[in-house]
Design a protein around this nucleic acid. Structure first.
Length: 283
DNA sequence: CTCCTGACCTGAGTGC
DNA sequence: TGCACTCAGGTCAGGA
């Protein structure tokens, strides 16, 4: 489900209700998601004063007690925030009760497919964690956030593109190159940049590369501003839908008219993933 | 190394 | 209705 804009939406909802507060209760309802949950997770969480909630790539970071709890939502993970203890839903795996400013709220992690994971790492080892160390730069800066990683820029992008033989579609999905993009926003960024997903990454240079960078930034920033993209069941933590789905130009629109030239949007498979694009506008 | 495939898991949608 | 099948927002191990 969640790419950078959806994860950013979750983090932006969690930060004001968790940072500076205390996790008073932690209900861990199964031993694993994609991986076994870290040993001692319940003890770590129970009574923990939360220092900060942030995000790197698609991973939510909750800092407390000298450690960082890493939360990845995988394909189907979501977070709900409730003012009252919620009725348990299928696939609610972790429920936290958090108190801040005298108000208690409940934070529930739901993940039907369990492709998500939770890990716990000392702050001093965070940068070396295998899910963090290999990540590429962050594509967008979030107003008010301290930078957690280098920001994507054109010199970096040009250099990274120049050595990549894979299609640009696969390149952009590779978290080691740029962190945070997923299938929706790669398709949309390539549409905005007028670049075919089939083009070899190393052939994206000059004006094409210069168009790609703002296309990536703008599509992500617009999606964040609209609360992400709700396709099937994705919701923001307050239960609202993400409205960026209205702004999709190609993703999920196979056979529908291109918004630019009215020819049919095409769908191909690349590295096992669907790529949607306009064969006329994207070269 | 790089790149691609299949696996992980459940639920929603489609077609018969 | 029911069943079989395909597909889904993401990684990750393994093989070419």
């Amino acid at each position: 489900m969640p790419e950078l804009p959806e994860v950013e939406t979750v983090k932006a909802a969690l930060a004001p209700i968790m940072a500076g507060g205390v996790i008073e209760e932690a209900d861990i309802r199964r031993p694993d998601l994609r991986f076994p949950l870290p040993t001692g997770l319940k003890d770590f969480l129970t009574g923990a004063p939360v220092e900060r909630v942030s995000r790197r790539a698609k991973i939510i970071l909750i800092e407390a007690r000298g450690q960082v709890m890493m939360l990845h939502l995988g394909m189907s993970g979501s977070v709900r925030i409730s003012d009252h203890k919620p009725n348990s839903q299928p696939h609610d795996h972790i429920e936290l009760a958090v108190t801040l400013g005298g108000q208690r709220r409940w934070v529930t992690l739901n993940d039907p497919r369990r492709f998500g994971y939770v890990d716990l790492v000392p702050k001093s080892d965070f940068a070396a964690h295998k899910s963090i160390a290999s990540l590429g730069p962050e594509p967008v800066a979030i107003a008010g956030d301290e930078p957690i990683a280098p920001l994507l820029d054109l010199p970096y992008l040009d250099e990274a593109l120049s050595g990549a033989k894979a299609p640009i579609k696969s390149f952009l999905l590779d978290q080691r190159q740029i962190a945070g993009l997923g299938n929706i926003y790669v398709c949309e960024a390539l549409y905005r940049a007028g670049i075919s997903p089939r083009r070899k990454a190393m052939s994206v240079k000059g004006k094409r590369a210069a168009r790609l960078l703002p296309a990536i930034r703008e599509v992500l920033q617009e999606a964040i501003a609209q609360g992400g993209t709700s396709l099937r069941d994705h919701k923001q933590p307050d239960g609202k839908l993400g409205y960026f789905v209205q702004s999709l130009h190609v993703y999920g629109r196979e056979g529908a008219p291109c918004h630019g030239c009215a020819s049919d949007v095409a769908m191909i498979r690349q590295a096992g993933r669907a790529s949607f694009y306009c064969p006329t506008c994207q070269r």
